[in-house]
């Protein structure tokens, strides 16, 4: 196990390093956005003094490098700062300043909603994709294979909102089995929550299945010409068992990587679906925050997205390594 532990440690360090680089990119990019929060909130008629006061209060007058390290130090302590937009600027008109809302307070519920949606989608999409992929490999070039390919390719090629509306039409309007609005709130029972989440999850399943299914199919077919598959066939093993027991374990590495990529997409890229179903996920918060130049929230979201990508890819790497018996059982 020594070599595996070393490889995993290497990947971990590399992942952290990547995250650091990404944090620099995020910070500079966000701060290069045109427009200024103080300007945006006070409007056209703001006096320069008022603008300066807000800038000073938020630390926007400091040089970029200083602000970066402040932010980074905060992030390392788990303090992502306070949201600009939710800040109480009453103090500037002489009133008592209220409690400031931290970025984490704002992000946490949204993020847990997003994770819930992603989890439900993954729980549906990953098994379906693997199952369809295995069947497509088994009955390659048959009517089933072609139908599965056409269906999944059509769904991945259609715009997400279009798929969403089609599903709403069939499952909420014509046959009202599922709610078309996913208004999630605290204190809901799990079953309720699941019911409200199901329609967006199904839409996302349609979006991500094609990629995973086709990779499963390709990775398996790629191995079918290898001598050990021929050997299995010559032992009189049934075609299904040849694929599941002899090909699949050796095809895991590419499949795991594609699954990870799609899971990362589910966490970071589902704004359109959230908008269509009015689902209170992190994607909407992110877009809103960009609109009003709420820099701390934007930065925190970016950092979470980056971390999700890196973490999932890291896990995919580690699982691929573990799927290789040569590394798991050295000589």
């Amino acid at each position: 196990m020594g070599s595996v532990a070393r490889i995993i440690l290497q990947r971990l360090v590399l992942g952290l390093l990547t995250l650091l680089v990404v944090s620099i990119v995020i910070f500079t990019a966000v701060n290069m956005l045109p427009g200024d929060f103080a300007q945006a909130i006070l409007g056209q008629g703001a006096t320069p003094e008022a603008v300066d006061a807000i800038r000073k209060d938020l630390g926007l007058d400091q040089p970029l490098v200083v602000r970066y390290f402040d932010w980074l130090a905060g992030a390392l302590r788990g303090d992502m700062g306070s949201s600009f937009a939710q800040a109480n600027f009453a103090s500037f008109v002489g009133a008592e300043a209220g409690e400031r809302v931290t970025v984490l307070d704002q992000i946490a519920p949204r993020f847990s909603n997003t994770m819930f949606l992603a989890t439900v989608t993954a729980a549906i999409a990953v098994p379906i994709s693997l199952f369809l992929g295995v069947l497509a490999a088994l009955y390659r070039n048959s009517v089933f294979d072609r139908a599965a390919n056409i269906f999944t390719l059509t769904s991945i090629s259609s715009p997400e909102f279009f798929l969403a509306y089609i599903l709403i039409l069939f499952l909420a309007v014509l046959n009202p089995v599922l709610p078309s609005l996913s208004n999630i709130f605290e204190g809901m029972t799990f079953a309720d929550r699941l019911e409200k989440t199901l329609l967006p999850a199904l839409t996302l399943t349609l979006v991500v299945t094609a990629h995973m299914m086709r990779m499963t199919r390709a990775a398996i077919i790629n191995l079918l010409a290898s001598p050990y598959i021929e050997m299995a066939r010559l032992k009189g093993i049934s075609p299904m068992r040849v694929i599941v027991r002899h090909a699949l374990p050796n095809a895991l590495a590419p499949i795991i990587n594609v699954v990870a990529l799609n899971l990362a997409y589910l966490i970071t890229g589902v704004v359109v679906i959230e908008v269509v179903f009015v689902y209170p996920g992190i994607g909407q918060l992110f877009v809103d925050s960009v609109k009003i130049r709420d820099i701390p929230v934007v930065q925190a979201c970016c950092l979470i997205f980056a971390a999700a990508y890196i973490l999932l890819n890291l896990m995919a790497d580690i699982l691929s390594i573990l799927s290789n018996p040569r590394l798991r059982h050295p000589k």
């Binding site: 001598p227 050997m231 066939r233 010559l234 032992k235 009189g236 093993i237 374990p249 018996p325």
Partner: peptide
């Protein structure tokens, strides 16, 4: 019918055992 015979009554030994054993098992 062939599957019933292969492995049970007719067996095969390949040139490269290293390539013909499944690396995963």
């Amino acid at each position: 019918v062939k599957r019933e015979l292969l492995g049970r009554r007719i067996a095969y030994v390949a040139q490269s055992a290293a390539a013909s054993f499944n690396p995963a098992h």
